[in-house]
Amino acid sequence: MAEAGKLRVATTSLAGCFGCHMSLLDIDERLFALLEKVEFDRTPLTDIKHCGPCDIGIIEGGVCNAENVEVLREFRKNCKILIAMGACAVTGGLPAQRNHLDLGACLQEVYLTEPGLVNGQIPNDPELPLPLDQVHPLHEVVKVDYFIPGCPPSADAIWKFLTDLIAGRTPRLGHGLIEYD
């Protein structure tokens, strides 16, 4: 349960590079101001394994495998507001550049027919999440409430966005804060 007056926030990285989380940390000393208003549930910084009921869920990275789907669904179920943070979450990003390739052919080439490969085998450990045939931005898998574009979004953009949201304003990033790259 959230401390009185504080918003509970969960974050996670799916098919992302943690760049967005680095950017989130980059808000530096403003993090303390943020912590006055929010407390964290599952994030890469806490060791909570599953997201509980939250006010805000922030997700970096797109959806590229079965585990991503499970985590995303868990977030959607538990978070009142879901935010896609960063190019990969918003557009599929770099991982989605494989969408034109046939997954079967890819696996075949990488694990079986690549020259120099001896006794190649496609990994089949049940602990490894299976890849989807295409990489999707979050909004193609669940309903997403807000988007913060950028690769990664700047710390200023994240800060502006969150402070607007927490203060109950419609978040607006002006010139220099909305960036797609």
Partner: peptide, 30 residues
Amino acid sequence: HFCPACEKSGNCVLQALGYDLGVMTAGFRH
């Protein structure tokens, strides 16, 4: 459009229109 890898990024009219109009996502299915 994968802007992070595009040489036109920063000089692109489509992108700049998106910025100016406050487009945060394609929203639709790609």
